[in-house]
Every structure is written in C-alpha cells, then in structure tokens.
Design a protein around this nucleic acid. Structure first.
Lengths: 202, 202
DNA sequence: GACTTGGGTGAAGGATCACTCATATTCTGT
DNA sequence: ACAGAATATGAGTGATCCTTCACCCAAGTC
C-alpha cells in the first residue's frame, strides 16, 4: 500500500491573476480527465492545456494528487449546491414528482462529466480527500433529511440511492441510452423506497 | 484520443509449463489490481509477483493492455457462468425469490473483487475488449430472457438492472455496509421492474 | 546424439513524466 | 518612481517503467 500523498494546496493565490492560473489548471485537468482518462492526466499536459508553465502549477499544488483533490471538491460542491436548490423547490410536491425532480438533477450533473465523475469517485477513496468527502457528506445528509421528513428512510437509504443512481446513470451514458433516463432512475429509487418501507414498517 | 493498443495474445502456450506461466501472470495481475489499483499495475511488478521474468510475460502478451483483456474475459466468463447456473435453478420460483437468488450471485461475485471489477469495467470501454464484451453480452441476454419469460421487461431493463446493481454493490462495499445487501439490491430491482411495468403496460 | 521447437531469462535502451530551481516578469503600496 | 512581494517561466534532473533482444535451457523427434 502506498502512503497517502500530500493533498493540501501549497499556497493561496493573492492576486486575481494567480486565481485565474489556479482556475485554469483545475479546468484543464477536468478536460483532460474527461477526454483521456487518468492515463493522459500528467502535469505537463495539464500545464500545457491550461496555458501555464509547469513551474506555475507547482507553485500552487504540491503534486498532481492535489489537483485531483481540488477538482473533487469543486465537483462535490457543485452537485451539493444543485441538489440543495432542487430540494428547496419541492417542499410540497408529492413524493413521485419530488423524486423525479431530484433524479433530473442527478442525471444532469452526472451526464455532463461521466468519466470525470467516475475517476474522481475512485480516487476519492484511494487518497483521503476529506474536503470532497465532507461536501459529499452534506449531500447525503440533505437527502437523508428529505427521506426522513417523508418517513421514507434514513441515511442508509440515501447512500444506497446515491450509489445506485451513479451506476445506472454511468451505464446509460456508456451505451448512449439516456432518453428516459430520469424516469428510469425514478423507478429504481421509488421502487427501492417502497419495498424497503414495506419490509420494515417503522 | 490514443489509438487502441493491440490486445490479442501473442502466442498460445503449447506445453503445460507454459500454460502455468500464463495463468500465473493473469493471477498476479488480478492480485495487484485489487491491492494497488491501476497505478501499481506495471509489467515488472506483475512478472515479479508471478515469479516469472519480464521476458516471459512478453512472450505471451504484446503489452500490459493485453493482460487486462485476458483478465476481463476471465472475469466476465466467470460471472456469466455463475449467473447461468443460478438461472437454471430458479425455473419455478416466484419472481421475488428468483430475483433474490440472482441478487445473491451478483453480490457474491462483485464483493470478492470490487476494485478489480471496477477497474476492468472502466478499461473495457477505453480499450476495445471485444472478447470480454461478448461474454458480458451473453450475460445480458440471459437476464433479458429471464425477464421476458416473466413479462417483466427486455434487454433495456436487463442493462439498467445490471448497472444499477454494480453501483449499489460497489458503494456498499466501499463503506462496509454489506449486511443485507442482497435484500436491498432486490428492493431496487423488484421496485424498478414493478414501476416500469406499471408505466408501460405491454 | 543431433536437430528443432517451445519456453525462459534479464540487462539495457529509450521514453515518459513528476518535480525543482535559478531566473525573469508583473504587480502593489507608498 | 521604486522596493519588495507575488507570480511566472522552462530547461534540467532523476526516477520509473515499457519493451526488446541476444542468449540459454528443456522437451520432443528421427
């Protein structure tokens, strides 16, 4: 087992110019990972695509794993925000409609960057990306709250649903069958919730 | 985009000794991928763990990707066999019991080598691992037949279920909540089938 | 026992890539 | 305008790793 590499940013950008550099590096990384996968993800390529020298990259990130960490945090944050917004808008909807709405959000997010999302998900485990995991934890809590408010389940159900969604969406994108994807995802989620509730009446 | 590397075996082992060498290489690769991930998967390490010289490795495989191909085929074949056996034993069971049985098979298989399975799944897309995909295709057809025999769905449903299962199982293994996993998986599958049937009555 | 073919070896070439450092440029406050 | 801080550069270094090749050993054949 390899020891976990340092993942905290090396220094913080103070000028706008520097912030743009950091942003360009993260964005370039996202593009490369989506297009080429982990294999094509090397610091030289990232710097080149970002239009920045390798030296600059190492000013802000202690290594390539650190870029992954920043990227993972960014994505987790974005998903949490999108889901939070959706949750705020569905207070009085019926459960099927509410779940359909949430399914849409998940599909939209995951469809945009399938490959990137899968890679980050795997690396999140391998390295200890605590920042990203914290954001993901907030997402789980938000869904768990939604479920328990409606007496549909708790945190365990939220996690199962999240993971099952990932698999279903990734698979559908892979084979290009994303037509009724949100609807199909709703079937899985609502079905899971109905049967789990029926199996263990609270 | 990188061009797809050659993946066909270089030559076929004719003596028992050679077959053992090939087997050792594939097995060592599986162990390394499970323990270290793609990052630790290099030909030197594989040869060393297999107790074989690097030269021997290149006698049978044109490159590391070819080992991946062989491994993917082996795993896909194993899963197809296990699932086929289970399908043969559940001819007259009720649908919930039958699905529970299949869920068990999927959980057992995926739980044994989660990390390996995930890696192979990703690489299967990246390279064109046709042999492995053929075996996977047979698995899909077997499930599709099971579903259509009971008027529960077709190939699309089979694929959705397979992918959703992968996500759910991987997630559960990741966080160590594999206790009622087969049951939870059954909920998702049966729920999906029930609602999809209800949405589009044949 | 000579010959053929299959099997096995590992040092070495060559490519890639992470990361550093000495130097140059740009910004910001005064 | 100037000093000092922040930012940017990219050739170079060393390590890792894929792959080849020239050579040796083992097994079967006549």
């Amino acid at each position: 087992m390899a020891d976990p590499p340092t993942v905290a940013p090396r220094k913080r950008p103070r000028q706008a110019r520097a912030a743009a550099t950091v942003e360009a590096i993260v964005e370039a990384s996202a593009r490369i990972l989506e297009a080429e996968g982990l294999a094509g993800f090397n610091t030289n390529a990232v710097a080149a695509l970002a239009g920045v020298s390798i030296g600059s990259l190492y000013q802000y990130f202690p290594g390539k794993e650190a870029i992954l960490a920043a990227l993972a945090e960014r994505e987790a944050e974005a998903f949490d925000a999108a889901l939070g917004a959706a949750l705020g808008e569905i207070g009085d909807l019926g459960t099927p409609s509410a779940v359909a709405r949430l399914a849409r959000v998940a599909v939209d997010h995951q469809t945009r960057h399938t490959r990137l999302a899968r890679i980050l998900d795997m690396e999140e485990q391998r390295l200890g990306l605590t920042e990203a995991q914290a954001a993901a934890g907030r997402t789980v809590q938000a869904i768990a709250k939604f479920l328990s408010d409606r007496h549909l389940g708790g945190e365990a159900a939220a996690l199962d649903i999240l993971h099952l969604s990932r698999g279903l969406i990734d698979g559908a994108v892979e084979r290009g069958t994303t037509d009724d994807l949100a609807k199909r995802l709703s079937w899985a989620i609502l079905g899971y919730l109905a049967l789990s509730r029926q199996a263990q009446p609270a």
